[in-house]
Structure formats: C-alpha cells, structure tokens
C-alpha cells in the first residue's frame, strides 16, 4: 500500500504540475490527506510521492538538457550550491504536499469526531 500510494501521488503530481502548475502539489496533498487514513504515514508518503513526482519531471528534463548546469548557475544566486538547490527543489514539494495532507487528514479526523459526538448525543 505504501509504495502504491507513493507511486499514485507521484503520478498525479506529475500530471497536476504539468497541467496546472506548482501550486497544484498542495491540492494533491489535500486530496491525499482526505482519501487516506489520517496519520504520520500518509503525510510521509504524500510528501515522498510529491518529491518523487518532481524528481521524475527533472529526470525527464535531464534527458533533453543539462539540469545540473542549471543548478550550478542558479543555486549560487540564492547562496546555495548546486546540490543544495536540487535538494530544495525536492524538499519544497515534499513539504508542500505533506503539510497539505496533514491539514486535510486532521480536518477529516475532526469531522469524524464531530460526527461521532453528534450521533452519541
């Protein structure tokens, strides 16, 4: 289930990023958080899937162009080495999707608890 969820999140992230833009990674995280069991694993798997999705796009771009040169040129503009810049490019979607999944999962849990309380009363 873990690998499957990561793969699905990665695939959806690739499609959403290409079609809609970077911000859609947060939307993917929210959906993942809503449809998956709440908990740390969902957060980690959603974040990991998003990072994997962006890594896949970068890998595909690397086939046609020098990704590493871009990192070498642009990284220092922000005071980070090329490897650091590449790492940021993967950490960013992971945090974005992971935090969105966490928020969505917790909201879902609150909704469930509220529903339970309502029924109990």
């Amino acid at each position: 289930m873990t690998y499957l969820r990561i793969a699905v999140v990665a695939a959806v992230t690739v499609a959403a990023t290409i079609l809609l833009g970077w911000w859609s990674v947060a939307a993917v995280g929210i959906v993942s958080g809503l449809v998956s069991p709440p908990g740390r694993a969902t957060v980690l798997e959603t974040g990991g899937g998003a990072a994997l999705g962006w890594a896949a796009i970068l890998a595909a771009s690397a086939v046609s162009g020098p990704i590493w040169v871009v990192a070498q040129r642009v990284g220092p503009v922000f005071g980070v080495p090329a490897s650091g810049f590449l790492a940021i490019a993967l950490v960013f979607p992971a945090l974005l999707a992971g935090s969105a999944a966490l928020v969505a999962g917790e909201l879902r849990r609150f909704a469930l608890v509220a529903e339970g309380l309502r029924r109990a009363s």
Binding site: I18, A62, S64
Partner: peptide
C-alpha cells in the same frame, strides 16, 4: 516567489530543456 521558479516544468529547470 519560489513556487514558479522551482516548478520543474515551467520554472528555472526548463532552461535546460531549451538549452539546445
């Protein structure tokens, strides 16, 4: 704004795909 810049499809990385 780092979102658009880090975007692997449209961001700075796209410079690699149009390098040649």
């Amino acid at each position: 704004p780092v979102g658009g810049m880090l975007d692997p499809w449209r961001g700075v990385w796209a410079a690699a795909s149009v390098a040649d």
